[in-house]
Structure formats: structure tokens, C-alpha cells
């Protein structure tokens, strides 16, 4: 026996909070994306723990998909960040706020 399930959940939750704080609190597009990755990872941990708790392999199946989706999302996200960087010459999300009043590209 390893640990009570609630401890796994607690770890997952704390990791999720850290990731959320990174996504919301850092004024940097790359950090937003990193926060997203951390949150996804936290979710994966919760699922693996759940698979072990109920002794079913479904939980691990979900993690496979989470991984696939994280990969797709990061690739597109980084491409968009590159585009935003070329547009505003910085990685500040607040520079993207008034795009409609700026000149179109």
C-alpha cells in the first residue's frame, strides 16, 4: 500500500493551483503556456492515481489522450505565440488587447 488516495489528489490539486497561478499571474505568453502544461500534468497525475485506486486501466487511457492533446496544443500555441511576437514585438499579453485599433497586419 502506498498512500491514501486523498494524498494523491492533494498533490494533484496543489500542482494545479501552482499551474493556474502561473498562467494567470505571469505577464508572459510563454509562461501562460507553461502554466497550462503544468495543469495538464496535474490532471494526469490525478488520473493515474484514480486508475490505481479503482484498479481499472481506464485512467491510464485518459492520460494517453491528455498527452496527445497537450502535444497538439503546445505546437499550435507556440506557433501563435510566434505570430503574436512578430505582431507586437513582445511577449506581453496586454499588448494584444487593442489589436483592432492598431493597424491591420
Amino acid at each position: 500500500m502506498i498512500v491514501p488516495y486523498s494524498h494523491v489528489l492533494l498533490l494533484s490539486a496543489l500542482l494545479f493551483v501552482v499551474g493556474m497561478l502561473c498562467a494567470v499571474g505571469r505577464r508572459n505568453l510563454i509562461m501562460i503556456l507553461l502554466g497550462l502544461e503544468v495543469m495538464l500534468n496535474a490532471g494526469a497525475i490525478a488520473f493515474v492515481g484514480a486508475a490505481l485506486r479503482w484498479q481499472q486501466i481506464e485512467g491510464q487511457t485518459v492520460v494517453i489522450f491528455v498527452l496527445a492533446i497537450a502535444a497538439a496544443e503546445v505546437s499550435i500555441g507556440l506557433a501563435l505565440i510566434v505570430w503574436a511576437y512578430r505582431r507586437t514585438e513582445s511577449l506581453d499579453p496586454e499588448r494584444l488587447q487593442d489589436l483592432d485599433t492598431a493597424e491591420p497586419l
Binding site: 493556474m20 498562467a23 494567470v24 499571474g25 505577464r27 501562460i32 499579453p93 496586454e94 494584444l96 488587447q97 487593442d98 489589436l99 483592432d100
Partner: peptide
Amino acid sequence: LSLLHDAALQARMMLIF
């Protein structure tokens, strides 16, 4: 209303959470 479109990205994420 269009201000809702380009309100701060992170503020909106905060709202979600």
C-alpha cells in the same frame, strides 16, 4: 461589448477559474 473581446487574456482566464 467589443471591449469584452480584447479584455485582458489573463483576466478572463482568472474568471474561468
